[in-house]
Design a protein around this nucleic acid. Structure first.
Lengths: 377, 377
DNA sequence: TTGATTTGTTCATTTCCTGAACTTAGTGTC
DNA sequence: GACACTAAGTTCAGGAAATGAACAAATCAA
């Protein structure tokens, strides 16, 4: 078992990349003496290794990096059928892929994970021995212990202690998390927000998800509901939403909503790209739909910037490009609706992601727990 | 100087009220042995004292409470002319009041504070000896060290190192903070949000301020701008705001905006109460104004709930009552615009405050620093 | 009165970190 | 190339803050 200091050390390397002992000592507020011992222990444990040497004045410094294969994690995404299941290392590199049939019975899910586990673990000689945890991403609300699903419409769950069930079946420490929050953690650990303490992720797909990192920690909210941007009212008195109210961001800017609006206008297109093509040809209806969606999402993001002043907004999407009307309007709407003094101060980054995003996010939940230790969050 | 553990102990008592040593040991994750020593030291230092005895099975537990007069704090509000300046104890009780002339010259402010200091300190025999810090609240943006005012329109400041200037003149540790954030800290330390880890404060007055506590800590945002709810776009394409954009919450729901709208409609009334009276008589224009303001603020708060899922929204106001149309519409708008599943889950509390609010908030900044220690936030 | 129960203290021990001195491995200069 | 200079990293004695176990203290329950 690792000590808190050892975990801290692993975490800052994970955040900042290779560092010399002296740099780490300064960052953690420890003496060089303490760092010397910590580093030695972690090198002996096979978790750190010396990389390059940096020459300056005085004795050169030797930078230490994580040994990415010092721990392995399983990630399962319960968002699709079949449910993707991956094996990843501490860098978020996907070592192996698999899948399990989706089920609404938690025991069946646990059994399926247990069944699929050996195959995945066989793909790396150390994986079995160094498996450190299982993470599961799902659509819905998760409690603060990250063990129980409080509510999931998609899975029709209410207070399901999924983590415990899987853990008992597989014998591996297991945590669950909301889909968007898992993606945020994966961006913090593996992605482009590694060294950013305050940022928000917006996942744009059939639905719209959002999650916040605050002071370097995932902020889950008082009921685990932080980031439910999809049901912010963005068009007061607008179209009815499946949630029961009207004018939710979800009803205008989700890819599902865009598709439905497109169909209602007689388009047969299934993707954003097709609609963008129509818009670029000058089709007024296509332009209207994209404009409406882009400005709605832009306004929501601007409000998020005003309220939380994050250091980065990261929009992930699976659909085609963001170079068209939708992306342009979105960015314009963000700029137009933040305090002019702040306009352009908050980077809004768009990242195209592949189908692994949710499973990788799930694995990152386990990796995060590995780096920060138990009984923390 | 206090150790981190001692500060932690003071903080949990400040949050939860009197606690027994065993309870505190559990809350802090320490052994009874460690707690025994900590408590003894703090009692010897005159910061803690034993209060009542709680009888149950086994040996009764003796609860420990803060000795509120173990530390004193100065709070200055640079929001009014003259600027109120108070002396408070660790419970937020105001021991003495004074004021200084407001100036845009930081050196003049520092000099005025230094001049007014002796009089305030004379009002309590221990105050001089136990003065632990000066807090200053101002309208504007403050950097993360809480020493520099990055920008203040009201004071016409840009990058003014006010805390250092005052500290050098007075010889007392000094911190500055944005007005709404100071109020949030004061509600966390002294007020009704003591034991709540995640909450947001909305200060309703001539302007609208807002600040968030997240995971028991004030969240300042990446540029110190978290909580700038006043310039969320709430009426797209609405009235122009002095910030340069349109439809900001500030242009519809601030008391200043309400007054201006009332004047534009030919009302001569100066306060919310008068407009409420008109509305209760059935005056359509008054009703329209109040409805518009209440629903705008309600929508903004609902969006805040959706985005951050706080455990409490605390609205502070100086104006008359919230029982009229404005308050009713506000609460309805909140309920109508949060996810129906969550409606009513987030308590929205309204608190009438007096003119001491800003100065007390300022003092709480110093008290907060005292409780959490230097080089932390 | 006796036992059960829980609070709080004492003390030897452990853990983790620090400060100071030292070793190591380079650069820059004459 | 010898020399000082600089900075990284190690070693080691010592110290602060915690722990665990045993114990003392104060009450309730039978």
């Amino acid at each position: 078992m690792l000590t808190p200091s050892q975990r801290q050390l692993l975490r800052i390397i994970s955040e900042s990349g290779p560092l010399s002992r002296t740099e780490m000592a300064q960052m953690l507020g420890l003496s060089k003496a303490a760092m010397s011992g910590l580093a030695r222990d972690l090198i002996d444990l096979g978790m750190l290794h010396e990389t390059d040497t940096v020459y300056g004045q005085g004795r050169p410094s030797v930078r230490l990096d994580l040994y990415p294969e010092c721990a392995f994690f399983i990630g399962v995404s319960l968002l699709e059928e079949p449910a993707p299941m991956i094996l990843s290392d501490l860098n978020g590199k996907i070592i192996a892929r698999g899948s399990i049939p989706l089920s609404r019975d938690p025991a069946v899910v646990a059994e399926a994970i247990a069944q699929a586990l050996p195959d995945l673990l066989d793909s790396h000689p150390d994986a079995r021995e160094k498996l450190a945890g299982i993470g599961i991403a799902l659509s819905g609300f998760v409690d603060e212990t990250q063990a129980n699903c409080v509510q999931s419409t998609l899975l029709n769950w209410q207070d399901v202690p999924l983590a415990r069930i899987v853990q008992e079946r597989c014998g591996i420490e297991t945590f669950i998390e909301n889909d968007a929050k898992a993606v945020a953690v994966s961006e913090k650990l593996f992605g482009s927000a590694r060294d950013i303490q305050n940022f928000s992720v917006v996942t744009l797909g059939d639905g719209i998800g959002c999650a916040h990192f605050i002071d370097g920690k995932l902020y889950r909210g008082n009921h685990g509901g932080a980031g439910e941007i999809a049901h912010c009212t963005i068009e007061p008195g607008g179209s009815p939403c499946r949630c029961g109210k009207r004018g939710c961001l979800d009803t205008v800017a989700s890819m599902k909503a865009v598709r439905e609006m497109a169909r209602a206008e007689g388009f047969s297109c299934d993707t954003l790209v097709e609609l963008e093509t129509e818009a670029s040809k000058g089709n007024a209806a296509a332009i209207r739909i994209l404009h409406r969606a882009g400005s709605a999402l832009g306004l929501a993001i601007a409000n998020l910037i005003q309220m939380n002043d994050p250091g980065l907004i990261l929009i992930t999407h699976v659909e085609g490009s963001f170079d068209g009307l939708f992306g342009t309007v979105l960015k314009q709407a963000v700029e137009a609706n933040v305090l002019p003094r702040y306009a352009g101060q908050t980077p809004v980054r768009v990242k195209r992601v592949d189908g692994d995003i949710w499973a990788r996010g799930a694995a990152s939940i386990a990796a995060h727990k590995f780096l920060i230790g138990p009984h923390t969050n």
